[in-house]
Simulated scan of single mutants.
Amino acid sequence: MNAPSWTDWTFDPLVVAAIAIAAWSYAVAYRRACRVAPKPPGVGHWLPYAAGLGVLAIALMSPLDEIGEQYLLSAHMLQHVAIADLAPALLVLGLRAPILPLGLPKAGLRWIAPGGKLGRFIHVATRPWVALPVWAIATWVWALPAVFDAAAASPALHALQHATLFYAGLAVWWLIVDPLPSERRKPHPIRLGYLGFTRLVSAAVCLPLTWLSTTLYPRYVDAPRAYGIDPLRDQQIAGAAMCLAEFLIFGIALAVVFIDLLGRDARLAERTDALLPRTRGTT
């Protein structure tokens, strides 16, 4: 078997069609939101969404997919981080207001409204007591060596693995970002707590892989050594890469929240300063 190079892409028609439909639907919603929103969306909306689609394309159609299935555990774990974490986070960031709900037609609004069919599902699926346990279960179960190796060997099970990881990621990032106008939106510290919980769940997978001195995944112990990486080193790279990705995601989210809080303090100070002359004049 010839090992794939990093230029060997596989263009799955279903994946290409799904990404194309997602991109076209977003472009329509973006144009509509630009027309009707008091403050039109900008690069801070479409760029994360486009990046999320790009991450999905790389994860599912680049050589990363075949290398992860046949040769390297590290490539497979990196693919999972992209599908379950990075892509969902970017897509949900791109969908936040005013894209949702102002970018939708009336029929779409009825669907995502709290009483609509999709709205009821979103409301339940993104509750903390649903989204967080589903994330934990998907992360841990699919990382079990026997289950992980079985999924890598079966195309159908592999597709199910990717689907559950992606939708679990969408649910948990929807909970954290909360892109729809909502009375239930939690304060920043609580949403950071949700994010911190997901990082701890992932740490239970990546830390053992990084530091264990024995291999856990028989499929990758017996895999061809086409890239010159021995099984234990491959496993340690997989764990370290996962831990680094989780740390960066949490660090960036923490920095964004901190900057937002500073901006709010600055705006409050400006409003207070504007009132001072009037206040002094009345004393």
Rank of each mutant, 00 (worst) to 15 (best):
P128K: 01
L175H: 00
L100W: 14
F121W: 15
H158Q: 03
I112C: 01
D149M: 03
P101E: 09
W140R: 11
R96M: 07
A163H: 11
V130R: 02
S154H: 10
V130I: 11
P155Q: 05
V92H: 09
A150M: 10
V141I: 14
A150I: 00
R120S: 08
T126K: 02
L104D: 06
A163P: 05
P181E: 01
P98V: 05
W142Q: 09
W140V: 08
F148H: 14
L104H: 05
F166V: 06
I176Q: 04
P133L: 01
G119Y: 07
L132V: 00
A152K: 04
A113D: 13
L102I: 06
A97V: 12
L95Q: 09
G108R: 01
L93C: 15
P179G: 01
P181W: 02
L100P: 08
L160Q: 07
P128G: 03
A97I: 12
G115D: 15
L175T: 03
A168D: 07
D149A: 04
A138F: 13
G94I: 02
Y167T: 14
W135R: 13
W142N: 08
G169C: 08
F148W: 11
I99Q: 01
P179Q: 03
A146C: 00
P179I: 04
F121E: 09
W140L: 15
L180M: 12
V141G: 10
P128D: 07
A138N: 13
H158A: 02
F121V: 14
G119L: 03
V124N: 08
L95N: 10
L144E: 15
I122S: 08
V177I: 15
A143L: 07
L109F: 03
K106P: 07
